[in-house]
Amino acid sequence: MAMNTMQLGKTEIVQSALDDMETHLRTQQLPIREAVAQTCRILFAFGHDSGLSGQITARAEREGTYWTQRLGLGFDEIKPDNLLLVDEDLNVLEGGGMPNPANRFHSWLYRTRPDIRCIVHSHAPHVSALAMLEVPLAVSHMDTCVLYDQCAFLKKWPGIPVGNEEGEIISAALGDKKAVLLAHHGLVVTGATVEEACVLGVMFERAARLQLLAMAAGEIQPIQPELGEEAQRWTSTARRHEATFAYYARRADRILHPF
């Protein structure tokens, strides 16, 4: 039955739209390994690759283990069958080869935050440029409000993140946020799902690019906090993350396989 909505208040309209998304935004749920591999390819298609740098991980069913890519492969080369299952000490439990030693800080994040199911770390170019300037991420556009009040900043670079000290420092910097910008390094985003972490990773780089463009033209003006928080809630539902992830996957496939 059609609804007459022209007399409704904004709160009612927002809730009605969220209810409709639950019904209509239906996407295929990928098995965890396929979702991780697809995330790698999505990030490659969106320009996040930096040689062998960067890691994507996701908790596996067995406690204290997670899936990650094999060191020596680029994001665009990752498939479900070449992922590694590792424990928090980076011992390989399934698959061939070795994980990136920098995965150690992922182990610390998983230990510290039981709510985290997936971690994306990359050296995307615009994020890296902000990191070189030691400038925190400024979320000041509606498109990037998925990260509003969700991005911490680690200004003091602890060096290569292969020791336990770096894991403690990065997990402390993240705190209860979903993301952190690491000075002189790159981005870290986390998610309750692989889809959420992937979407936040893509939007983090877009936010950094917009910030650099705005900084070149003038002074960035902040969003009113209540409006930023409203937009963050609006763009942060599981259904929206799933639908966005599915679109990113289709787009990545067109880029990586144009014919």
Rank of each mutant, 00 (worst) to 15 (best):
M3S: 07
M3K: 13
M3Q: 02
M3I: 08
N4M: 11
T5S: 09
G9L: 08
T11A: 12
I13Y: 05
I13M: 15
S16R: 15
S16I: 07
E22W: 00
R26D: 01
T27M: 08
Q29D: 12
L30A: 05
P31H: 08
I32C: 00
E34N: 10
A35W: 05
V36R: 04
Q38E: 12
T39M: 10
T39Q: 03
C40E: 13
F44G: 04
F46C: 11
H48K: 02
D49T: 03
S50W: 08
G51M: 05
G54I: 13
G54T: 10
G54P: 12
Q55H: 14
A60E: 06
E61I: 02
G64E: 11
T65R: 15
Y66E: 05
W67R: 03
T68W: 01
R70D: 00
L71R: 14
L71W: 14
L73E: 12
G74W: 00
F75S: 04
E77R: 13
E77F: 03
I78G: 03
K79Y: 13
N82H: 05
N82Y: 06
D87I: 00
E88D: 06
V92C: 09
E94N: 07
E94S: 13
P99Q: 05
N100A: 08
P101V: 00
A102L: 04
R104E: 05
F105G: 12
F105M: 08
H106L: 04
W108H: 15
L109Q: 06
R111Y: 04
C118P: 06
V120E: 09
H123M: 12
V127T: 15
S128Q: 08
P136L: 11
L137G: 09
M142Q: 09
C145F: 14
C145G: 02
Y148C: 04
D149M: 06
C151G: 11
L154G: 00
K155G: 01
K156A: 08
P158S: 03
G159Q: 02
E166F: 00
S171Q: 02
S171T: 13
A173M: 11
L174I: 14
D176M: 09
A179K: 06
V180P: 02
A183Y: 06
A183I: 13
L187Y: 02
V188N: 01
V188H: 05
V189H: 00
A192I: 15
V194H: 01
E196M: 07
C198N: 10
L200P: 01
F204D: 14
E205F: 03
R209Q: 11
Q211T: 15
L212E: 01
L212C: 02
A216H: 00
I220F: 06
Q221P: 01
Q221D: 11
Q221F: 09
L227D: 12
G228W: 15
Q232A: 13
R233A: 14
W234V: 09
T235Q: 10
E242L: 00
A243N: 14
A246T: 02
A246H: 11
Y248P: 01
A249Y: 03
A249L: 09
R250T: 12
A252V: 08
L256D: 05
H257S: 06
P258M: 04
P258N: 08
F259E: 13
